[in-house]
Simulated assay, not measured.
Amino acid sequence: MAKASPIDPTTFDALPLDKSITASRQRIEAMERLLERVVVLPGINRPIGLDVMLGLIPIVGDIAAAALGSYIIWEARNLGLSKFHMARMMANVGFDAVLGFIPIVGDAADVMFRSNTRNLRIIRKHLDKHHPSTVTVEG
């Protein structure tokens, strides 16, 4: 699991807006980091992100988190992922949203079930296979 760092606004500065595959990968990784790994939860030493924070707001927060997670799916569609992979990604976001609708249990599930991280893994596997020049080394 990638290590979360304290909130650093410069992390999201200057994301490329062009349509290249490398730019899409950077935007997807930044969105996943924002949704899943913004800060570390004290006590259990587990990173959380905007997905968990929005999940604390009943109904509306879960819908907003699902909408933000759908951005990753939209980027994946633009990258040409198969319908099977798109369906898996939609199921991940949908399952996360449905879990979020359950009071208290949904909030705990948001910490444990990371749909956006799962979706990023699917996209990375596709890009590493079909576009190996976009691979970045994490330091």
Rank of each mutant, 00 (worst) to 15 (best):
I123C: 08
R88I: 15
N116A: 03
I102A: 14
D51S: 11
M90Q: 15
D96I: 10
M1H: 01
T136K: 11
I57F: 11
A66D: 06
L127E: 03
M90F: 15
G80F: 10
F12K: 03
T22A: 14
P16G: 10
R77F: 07
L127S: 09
F12H: 03
L15I: 12
I73G: 05
M90P: 12
E29R: 08
A4L: 00
S70E: 04
V98E: 13
I73V: 14
D62H: 13
R77S: 07
V98N: 13
R77V: 11
V111T: 10
R46Q: 06
L56H: 13
V135K: 04
D128G: 04
E138A: 10
L54M: 12
N92F: 15
F113Q: 07
S133L: 05
A14G: 06
T22C: 06
P9M: 02
L41M: 09
D13P: 00
I59P: 10
T10K: 07
G43K: 01
P132D: 02
V98T: 15
A4T: 00
T10D: 07
R33T: 05
V52D: 08
S24M: 13
A67P: 04
M112C: 06
E32L: 07
D110H: 06
L127R: 07
F113A: 01
D96W: 06
M1R: 00
F113G: 04
H126K: 10
T10W: 05
L68T: 03
V39F: 05
H126A: 11
I63H: 11
K129E: 14
A76P: 07
R25G: 09
G49F: 05
A64V: 14
G94V: 13
K83M: 14
T136I: 09
N45R: 04
D96R: 14
R77G: 10
S5I: 03
